[in-house]
Design a protein around this nucleic acid. Structure first.
Length: 706
DNA sequence: TGATGACGGTTTTTT
DNA sequence: ACCGTCATCA
């Protein structure tokens, strides 16, 4: 607890009651949270009376570890986890009050999308007109807001009826199969508070609630917190300048208006930064100052100014990557570690050029993001068999593996099954039993047989038994080049089951909040959905770190490259449509810059190939928002051209450069977005007020505007 | 059943 | 450019 600065100390020792800690980047936020808990414990609060919630499993683990080093109490009764993990625990304990089956399972995002696609097909909706992915995103957003199908029907504008219909059908399908999605975990947990005895029980038990990354809470999470923390002992930590998840339902207003909801709120600002040099902070402060509606905070440091923030202007993305990797090599030559270098970008597609350059130079690297372990197809297939063992009516699992490995159950049979199930309100499993078709029966018998044979097996034994018995292993073994990785993943899955089991028996099942609930198999399946893998992610060898800006939040690196600072890329095109979008991009830029401890290099390319076509790029407005005296310009020494010839330079002159304004007699004024030419004729893509159109150059009567 | 080509979409990501 | 999805055909 020693070594806290005055503001940190004020936060940690604040009297009971609502507290809002505005913790700037690198201001020791986690330290304050853990010290606060330690302080409460020293003051006589029992571990079981504290709930601490985070957004990621990683953050929860880290906090528990740090706390464990600070206090010697038994912390097992202390309830610490992600919102979803905590909600899940409540649902297991009170499934009866929520009309959930005891062994309900959790759908991950992919399962949920598949199920939505299925109910949309059953409703015979045109997938062109109603893309299932967009529908899934909407449903997820509605759940973040706490809207059910009925609210959607009455509140949404265009398409409300269809939306409500699909949403409702999806909800019924889940209920029939005993499934909940991520949004449901939170919604059901909130619904639980409508049962007065249950709410009162937890209000009595939980005397102190602490929340990390409060700016990321959505409407449902905040409602849940408010109802629980009636005693007002709600200690929230957040940073409005680091709110970068509005697109998935986060409401920074929860933080901005916290003081109105809890008038007695004590506000503490943590503005002293322990991470970065003065130059980096000044630059980051300058960028974020362009955002309106901030609570207002200016980071400062006792460190010296350090090296100026550098800007590299690359010819194209290849040159950008070459330069960045060159700087990494300089860093290594000077004795630095690879893991101290981070290459950050707005979108994951940008990693490719960097990967190619790193491979060329033989520098080990790690790319974050992408498919995680429990999301891999073969892993999910194996888990689906286990899900069927746990619950035959899990239609999502049934659909996934009824014909995996291929056993001759085709689309026709499946359609018949679905129709029968729908008509009679049965699960696919029940409908399959009634069908009496040979191959389907074989599948049913296989699952029943596995269940019998593995009834007394250990979890790892079940896992292995299912992989072998379903012939998933032999099926994947003959898959040529991809076989090796798939088989490794299946083996790894058995290992994961084994270690989960060991941890389980060490900690023991129980019925208390913080202890493990009763069913090992069921809990392992939940673990797979709630913690998609990558768990031991830090145990990587010394590698250069590549990740999106979003993934970088919460991390820090001595040397940071913030790349692709170009209009349309960062800030991203789709975020430019409204002021909120732009503000969020700017916060993202701020997050990226404040990751850097000692050296920050910003880069942009004059030309970039994106989605297959070459574009001239305008430097990002964020570069202009940093006063030039804080920046040091780096110019390339020699022009490096792209190895492969650019695609679009063939023939035909295009009289309208990208970005120029044109006038069309019918569509009006527009901006040139793209062009194609094959030597004889060309066409250009133009954004008009009425939408984006392709126009043939020889035909369309166009006039170029100044 | 599996291979092949057309087509469309394409920010960010946890849980 | 690239990936996943879907219709078509051997």
């Amino acid at each position: 607890m020693n070594g806290l600065n005055p503001r940190q100390w004020e936060a940690v020792t604040a009297p009971a009651g609502p507290a809002l800690v505005l913790a700037g980047a690198g201001s020791g936020k986690t330290r304050v949270l853990t010290s606060r808990i330690a302080h409460l414990l020293e003051g006589g609060v029992r571990p079981g009376e504290i709930l601490a919630v985070t957004f990621t499993n990683k953050a929860a683990r880290e906090m528990r570890e740090r706390l464990g080093r600070m206090v010697s109490l038994d912390l097992r009764p202390l309830w610490m986890g992600t919102f979803h993990g905590v909600a899940h625990r409540l649902l297991r304990l009170h499934h009866g009050a929520l009309d959930l089956p005891e062994g309900f399972q959790v759908l991950d995002a992919e399962d949920s999308l598949r199920l939505i696609r299925r109910v949309m097909r059953e409703a015979q909706l045109d997938e062109k007109q109603w893309p299932p992915r967009a529908m899934a995103a909407r449903i997820s957003r509605w759940k973040d807001e706490g809207w059910g199908p009925e609210q959607v029907r009455t509140q949404e504008g265009r398409g409300a009826v269809i939306y409500a219909q699909v949403y409702g059908a999806y909800e019924s399908a889940k209920a029939r199969s005993g499934l909940v999605d991520f949004g449901d975990l939170l919604l059901y947990a909130l619904r639980l508070w409508q049962v007065p005895e249950i709410l009162a029980q937890y209000q009595r038990r939980i005397q102190h609630v602490l929340v990390d990354e409060f700016q990321d809470t959505n409407a449902v999470q905040y409602a849940w917190l408010k109802a629980l923390a009636q005693h007002q002992n709600l200690f929230v930590v957040g940073d409005d300048d680091q709110a970068i998840y509005a697109w998935r339902g986060a409401r920074v207003e929860n933080l901005l208006r916290f003081g109105e909801d809890f008038p007695a709120t004590r506000v503490v600002r943590l503005e002293q930064n322990y991470r970065s040099t003065g130059a980096i902070l000044q630059a980051a402060n300058a960028v974020i100052a362009h955002n309106p509606d901030r609570l207002g905070k200016t980071l400062w440091t006792e460190h010296g100014a350090g090296e100026a923030v550098q800007v590299y202007t690359a010819y194209n993305e290849v040159d950008e990557a070459r330069y960045v990797v060159g700087r990494v090599q300089q860093w290594l030559a000077a004795g630095g570690k690879r893991a101290e270098c981070a290459i950050l970008y707005r979108s994951n597609a940008q990693s490719r050029a960097f990967e190619e350059a790193l491979v060329r130079e033989g520098v080990p690297y790690r790319v974050y993001g992408g498919l995680r372990f429990f999301e891999r197809a073969e892993v999910k297939d194996a888990l689906a068999y286990l899900r069927l063992l746990a619950n035959r009516h899990d239609d999502t699992a049934f659909e996934r593996v009824v014909n995996v490995p291929a056993r001759g159950i085709g689309a026709v049979t499946l359609d018949r099954l679905r129709a029968a199930a729908r008509a009679q309100g049965l699960s696919l499993w029940q409908a399959a039993g009634a069908l009496g078709q040979g191959k389907v029966n074989e599948f049913l018998n296989l699952v029943n047989r596995l269940d019998r044979e593995l009834a007394v097996a250990t979890l790892a034994g079940k896992m292995e038994g299912v992989i072998v018995g379903s012939e998933l292993r032999t099926w994947h073994a003959r898959e040529g080049e991809r076989a090796e990785g798939r088989l490794e993943n299946l083996d790894e899955l058995v290992t994961a089951a084994r270690s989960y089991e060991q941890q389980w028996s060490a900690e023991g099942p129980g019925s208390d909040l913080a202890a493990q609930p009763g069913n090992l198999l069921s809990e392992f399946l939940t673990h797979a959905a709630l913690e998609a893998g990558e768990g031991a992610g830090d145990a990587w060898e010394d590698c250069v770190q590549l990740m999106s800006l979003h993934s970088a939040k919460g991390l820090e690196f001595p040397l940071v490259f913030l790349t692709g600072l170009e209009e349309g890329l960062f800030p991203h095109q789709r975020a430019l449509e409204d002021a909120q979008g732009l503000s969020e991009e700017r916060r993202l830029c701020y997050v990226g810059m404040t990751r850097a401890m000692r050296v920050l290099v910003l880069s942009h390319a004059e030309s970039r190939r994106l989605h297959g076509s070459e574009r001239q790029a305008i430097p990002s407005r964020f570069l202009r928002e940093v006063p030039s005296e804080l920046l040091q310009d780096l110019r390339p020494r020699a022009k490096i051209s792209r190895p492969a010839a650019p695609v679009r330079t063939v023939g035909a002159d295009i009289p309208y450069p990208l970005g120029c304004r044109i006038q069309h007699p019918v569509f009006g004024e527009g901006v040139v977005l793209d062009y194609e030419a094959d030597g004889r004729q060309g066409r250009i893509q133009v954004r008009f007020p009425s939408g984006v159109k392709w126009l043939a150059l020889g035909i369309a009567p166009l006039e170029r505007l100044a």
